[in-house]
Amino acid sequence: MTTATSAAFEQHRNLLFTIAYDMTGSVQDAEDVVQETWLAWSKVDAERLEHPRAYLVRITARQALARLRRLRAAREDYVGPWLPEPLATGGDPAEDAGRTEDLTFGLMVVLETLSPLERAAFVLREAFGYGHGEIARILGRSPDAVRQLTHRAREHVQARRPRFPSDPRRARRAAERFLSAALGGDMATLMEVLSPDVTLWNDGGGEVRAALRPVRGARKVARLMSAVGPRYARLHARWIPGAQPAVLLTADGMPVVVLVFDLDADRIRHVYGIVNPGKLRHLSDMPPPSWRTGEEMASDQPSRPGW
C-alpha cells in the first residue's frame, strides 16, 4: 500500500461514510462499509487510477447496496417500528462532503419504503448529484434502467416526503415548545403545537419498552407524552446539529432517547423517538457544552430568548 493510496482514501472518507449512511440508515453499518471499502482499496495502486474518487464511490455504493439487501431481510423481524440511527451533522463542514441535498431524518424514514436499488439510485442522484450514466456505471445497470429507478423512487418519495418550515428557527421553536410541554406534563400546550394528524413513532428494538405501533392523532400523542415526559425531566438535554430539530436526552453521560421532529407550518406532524440503546451509542461521543436538565427546559416560558 502506497502513501498515495492512503492519502486518496482519507481525502474522500467523509464522502464514503455519508453515501453508506444514506443508503443503509445505520451509523455502524456505514462504518463497516467504509472499512470494507478500505480493505478493497488497499490492494489498489492509486497512482495508476485516473479517477480515484469515482473508483472509491463505486466500491462503497456496491458494498452498501449488498449490505442493505441483507439488512432488509433482518429488519423484517425487528420488534416495533424500525427507524434510522440519528446522526449529528453540521459541526464539521467536511462531514457532508459531496452532498447536493441534505437528507432529513424524516426523508430517511421514507427511503426505507424503497427497494434497495431504488434507494441507491435516489441517494446517488438526489443527494449527491450523479448523472444517470455515472449511476449506471456504479450500480452495474444500464442508463435506461437507472432512469426508471430514479423516476419511480422520486414519485414515491414526493408522495410521502415530510414537510417542515423553510425557516429553521420556526421549526426549532415549535420543537422546543413540544419538549418543554412534554417534560412538564402540559397536555394543553402539546395540543397547541401538534398537528391534528400527528404521528409518533417509537423505536425500542425490543431492547427498551416502547410503543410497538405508531401512535396517531394529536390527543393520543399529547396524552401519551404528557404522561411519559415527566419521567425524563431530570435527564440532561441538548439539541443535535442537523437539518431538522432533534434533541438528545442523557443520564450520567449516556444517551437515553433522541427525539426528531418533522413540521408542517408551525405544527409538529411527525415525532420520531429512538430509545434503542444500540442506535444511540455513537452519540455518547458528542461534546457536552450547553447541557440543561429537562426540568430547566420544562420551566422555561416560550417568550424567553431561545425558547
Rank of each mutant, 00 (worst) to 15 (best):
V256P: 14
R231Y: 02
Y78V: 07
I19A: 01
I274V: 15
G229L: 05
R223M: 12
R69L: 08
T104H: 07
L283A: 06
D77F: 12
T2V: 13
V215K: 09
R173E: 09
L56G: 02
L190S: 10
Q148W: 00
L65V: 09
L194A: 12
A61G: 08
Q301L: 13
L68N: 04
L263M: 12
V110D: 01
A181D: 15
H151W: 07
L124H: 04
W201Q: 00
M254H: 13
T189S: 15
M297Y: 12
D22M: 00
D300Q: 14
G217N: 02
L39Q: 12
Q301N: 10
D264T: 13
I59G: 02
E112T: 01
A127L: 08
R125G: 00
H282M: 08
F261V: 03
N276Y: 11
L39K: 06
R281L: 11
M1C: 10
P84S: 09
S226L: 14
L107M: 13
H236Y: 15
F164R: 14
T250Q: 15
A174M: 01
M191Y: 03
V109Y: 04
P245K: 00
T37I: 00
F105L: 10
D102K: 13
W291I: 12
G80W: 00
R137D: 14
L212V: 06
A251F: 10
L49H: 13
P168R: 05
E47R: 15
A246V: 03
S284M: 14
E192K: 14
G129H: 04
R147T: 03
T113A: 02
R169A: 11
S115D: 09
R160V: 01
G91S: 12
A218C: 02
L107G: 00
R172I: 08
P165V: 15
V109N: 05
L16D: 05
P277C: 13
A54R: 14
M254P: 03
R119A: 07
L16A: 02
G90C: 13
G25Y: 04
R119I: 00
G253M: 11
L248R: 06
E192F: 06
R119V: 01
H156C: 00
A218D: 06
A40K: 11
L15M: 11
T189V: 15
S284Y: 10
T24R: 01
A120G: 13
A171C: 00
R160W: 03
A30S: 04
M297W: 13
L249E: 11
A8G: 07
G206C: 10
A97T: 07
S42N: 08
H156Q: 01
A73Y: 07
G131V: 01
R172Q: 10
P84Q: 02
A66C: 01
S226E: 12
F9P: 00
F164V: 06
V247Y: 01
P245E: 00
E134V: 08
P168I: 05
A182E: 15
A211F: 08
L39G: 02
H282A: 06
R13A: 08
D266V: 13
E176A: 15
E176G: 10
N202P: 01
H51P: 04
V123R: 09
T3I: 09
Q63L: 10
A210E: 03
L39Y: 04
E76K: 01
H12I: 05
R62F: 08
G253A: 14
V258G: 06
A4T: 15
R238V: 10
P86I: 13
E176M: 11
F261C: 04
H12R: 10
L56W: 07
A251D: 13
R163I: 15
F9T: 05
